[in-house]
Design a protein around this nucleic acid. Structure first.
Length: 359
DNA sequence: CGACGTGTAAC
DNA sequence: CCTTTTACACGTCG
């Protein structure tokens, strides 16, 4: 289940006076008035060529008079998302929230394995979300997560696509490899260089040729995907890492300036550490230079939940990084913790479901 | 085998 | 002129 242009749809719902206009939800970086990028655009805005990832300045050039630009309000979107996830939880055997606007649902038992029943469940879910939150979503139904995911993209917005087991082959036939979940621009280009453009070509290609290019593991994975095979269970996963990244007012290698930013970012991370109730063993910094190249440094230590220890560690890593890169100025910095250990006896519903289904 | 850094991908 | 957050795989090193 994929909520249609979620952020934009939520804002449209929140303020009906903008309904029907092109709406652009922006992430402003704060470096200059319009620096930043588009997080989501509704379909009206997409008609103008404005879509996720486009720089805000470029979007403003594409916009017309009635286009509405809004700053993203993630807290608010999360609240709405949480209500929707609660809503659909009882419609399925297992729920896996994949992002704020996306979830996988296992309905094998609820549907008794009958496609028509699964379809009826999907319709019920769509109606529920429409009634309770006034939002539309696109749903894909398939024999596994991979096919369901691709089915959900087949018709949007407000779509419902069923791909039965016996229809998988037909669906994949002549499907552009770029449409396969997990194949991005780099992998697609690599495959194209081997003369592979469609899923059936990938499925039928020589495994040895693929291994040469990608290594054994990835080669096998690619062919599995091209055949619509996927055994991964629908299960809520525990967070593996928590990070915060931000843009500096200007490119700099001033240690104090950069560290001030890291301290600021760490506060957001602290809230999440407390909410998730985790200890961490690894602290890292993320450095993005003038040329937008990303580098990281990290260090592992005894477990702690103290943000000040993370900051101390980040300071060392930053010093080390600046010494090792005496020429570089930074554009963006981040802090990250990983190697997380969950404190026992979590109380939230999601955590309960998590434990319940991982037994 | 764990730690570390990079690349790719998706949202 | 160019955002944010997370996952995961792989190579390398000790």
């Amino acid at each position: 289940m994929d909520l249609d242009s979620f952020y934009a749809a939520v804002e449209e719902k929140r303020n009906p006076s903008i309904a029907g206009k092109p709406i652009v939800i922006c992430v402003f970086s704060g470096r200059s008035a319009d620096s930043g990028a588009v997080a989501t655009a509704n379909y009206k805005a997409r008609e103008l060529g404005i879509k996720a990832g486009v720089p805000i300045v470029a979007a403003k050039r594409l916009a017309n008079e009635e286009t509405v630009f809004l700053k993203n309000d993630i807290e608010y979107y999360r609240d709405v998302s949480e209500r929707i996830m609660d809503l659909i939880e009882d419609e399925c055997d297992a729920l896996e929230q994949a992002s704020v606007d996306e979830a996988y649902m296992d309905v094998t038992k609820k549907s008794s394995g009958i496609w028509e029943n699964a379809e009826a469940i999907a319709i019920a879910i769509k109606n529920k979300i429409k009634e309770q939150e006034g939002l539309t979503c696109s749903i894909g139904i398939g024999p596994n997560k991979l096919v369901a995911k691709m089915a959900s993209k087949a018709k949007k917005p407000d779509g419902l696509t069923v791909i039965r087991q016996e229809e998988v082959e037909k669906f994949l036939e002549n499907l552009d490899i770029r449409k396969i979940h997990g194949i991005g621009s780099k992998t697609a280009e690599s495959l194209n260089s081997l003369g592979i453009k469609t899923a059936n070509q990938l499925a039928a290609s020589d495994p040895l040729k693929l291994e040469e290019q990608f290594g054994k593991n990835k080669a096998r994975l690619l062919q599995e995907k091209a055949r619509g095979h996927d055994e991964s269970p629908v299960e809520q996963k525990e967070t593996q890492q928590i990070s915060r990244i931000g843009t500096l007012k200007e490119d700099t290698r001033g240690q104090e300036i950069i560290f001030e930013k890291i301290k600021e970012l760490a506060q957001g991370m602290k809230r999440k550490i407390e909410k998730k109730k985790v200890y961490f063993r690894t602290v890292g910094i993320i450095a993005i230079d003038t040329g937008l190249e990303t580098q990281t440094r990290s260090e592992t230590m005894a477990e702690t939940d103290d943000i000040n220890i993370a900051l101390l560690c980040a300071r060392h890593l930053l010093e080390k990084f600046l010494e090792e890169n005496p020429k570089k100025r930074l554009r963006r910095v981040g802090i990250r913790i990983s190697n997380l250990l969950y404190k026992k006896e979590q109380t939230s519903l999601g955590d309960f479901a998590q434990r319940y289904f991982t037994r």
